[in-house]
Nucleic acid binder design. Sequence first.
DNA 1: CTGTTAGCGCCTTCAA
DNA 2: TTGAAGGCGCTAACAG
Lengths: 353, 353
Amino acid sequence: MSSQHSRPTSRDVAKAAGVSQSTVSLVLGGKWPGRVSPATAAAVHQAAERLGYRPNRAARSLRLGSTRTVMLVVPTLTATFFGAVYEGAARAAARHGFGVVAYPWPDDAGPADSPFAAAHEAIDGILASSLAEDVLSGFAGVPVVMLDSDPSAEAPTVVFDVQDAMRAIVAHLAGLGHRRFGHVATSIDQWTFHARGRALADAVADVPGATLVREDAALDVAAAKDAAARLLGGPDRPTALVCDDDVMAAGAYKAARARGLEIPRDLSVTGFDDVLLAAALEPELTTVRLPAGELGAAGMDALLRLLEGGRPGSLSLPGELVVRGSTGPAPEAPAPATKAVSTVATGQGRKKA
Amino acid sequence: MSSQHSRPTSRDVAKAAGVSQSTVSLVLGGKWPGRVSPATAAAVHQAAERLGYRPNRAARSLRLGSTRTVMLVVPTLTATFFGAVYEGAARAAARHGFGVVAYPWPDDAGPADSPFAAAHEAIDGILASSLAEDVLSGFAGVPVVMLDSDPSAEAPTVVFDVQDAMRAIVAHLAGLGHRRFGHVATSIDQWTFHARGRALADAVADVPGATLVREDAALDVAAAKDAAARLLGGPDRPTALVCDDDVMAAGAYKAARARGLEIPRDLSVTGFDDVLLAAALEPELTTVRLPAGELGAAGMDALLRLLEGGRPGSLSLPGELVVRGSTGPAPEAPAPATKAVSTVATGQGRKKA
DNA sequence: CTGTTAGCGCCTTCAA
DNA sequence: TTGAAGGCGCTAACAG
């Protein structure tokens, strides 16, 4: 026995199969046809199998100069969304023999360390989600694909079609007769939230006679509650609150309840994300489901293509409006309107009852 | 220029500093004092800095036979809990120059692949959270620390003090006058849930005159709602529902509402975990906060000690009871009791109003 | 105190 | 069709 008790090497396999190392490499690398006899190849495969041989990654990396590892940079892993992104990315990577290491980098922490504290410098490429492009300034030269961030960036991107999703929300609400919209917005400086704000404004502008007021807050329940309370306390109280995120919708629920408003009778509320929370709330939340896993997978596919020398294009994934119990017909005369709201039915509006 | 445009090697640094490679290795490895002159050491450091030198991980791994990488196996990353475990573990690992790769392995998927599809076989140790020990059967020989799982296992473990947490919950509830408890349990076959069930039964048994009924359900809102409904529909309706998880508590809320019961006036509800959900519910949930990040960090510390040849002991982390709005005094005469509930005040009960 | 040397396991010429 | 040899970048013996 040449191998003491540790993992077998290609040498061991060669010895066992009665061939040379290079033959083993050829066969196991799958490029033997036409260069190695089928019989020899079979013998090699068999020996490798029997010995439980697995190539040493470090040695392979050293020789090849590539690590077959991709780093996923996300603001946090403590959010189901990014966990799903990771799982989607890892699945796609595994199909190509790549591994993924997660690197949580809070968005308010400035540019990420280039010389990693975590010793993760051995990387072939970077997948960055929901981060500003300049966060990656320390990684010049490393192939990058950006997820859920400004598609006008240089790197290939994969994003959600936020505009379409917001249009769907507004169409749904407008169809229920709503005209006075409130936007419970998050103040986080991320592309997706800027995009949501813009998309909502655009969509509302397309509804004749519709108005939109906006309040910003941090992305947590308490802050969102305050923002929603401000909206609800203002003149011309909105009949529908469009929230930037399911978490903020939970805050909106609380503000509504504090004001004695019943959802959806007196107020409609929508979210964005469709995480666990949406189904846990009462009534269940009408929201847009964002396919986080697919985002990760599509991003990884693009990155892998990039690593192979290709030039992947940018991509946009559709969200899906999930209508649940938090939206309903606009209340008839919700408040003594000070401004006349001359609503022109656009034809797509369909009121129930 | 010897280096074309790629990363500088220790050779380049040596050349730049006018010394040999081994000196560079010694200096940068921090074991030069007494072997290299301070002046030379300074020169090396400076050259390395100027060139932006970073050691090649693959080469180092190959030489050292260790990868300075640990694998964290978790049931899923799509849960804030495991995301927090990861972050805690990664932080602790980084302090020692270790990296962490996450490996989501659903608990119902049987023993994990030993020869990883994801090519993650290059690993020094394994941290496994909330998994049965036999899931790791394919990794014989690799140092392992188990998190949140049966402490009677062979491997060192880090767990939460479930028993203490449950006692705190029951004490809190009993202090409010509750004697009829319902357990909304999860049917998931994990150590922690078995432990919760046992701990709850024990704690209730210690309250004179107290009773406990139990219903099992999958770990999701809808299933928990059904289970809670069964509990609430049975004879001698419980006045307090102890749920195995915050998610299940959300289901309990729904069941209560469906039955016209108001929380906490007619029914008290408690959770377990204190994730985002607890503060999003209305009223906010009384629950036990489980320090997931600390679990990961403590586990990683233990694993690192194990890798250094030590024999870390097992550890138990305390949870913290967080009292919020979902628990209140037991209703006076909640239902025409068929059994007499002879309540003996234990002296620690303190009713408001 | 510093330099030389060897070899970790793999893949890829090059020669047979 | 197969084997021998070299070297990826690093570290640890061993010389000097």
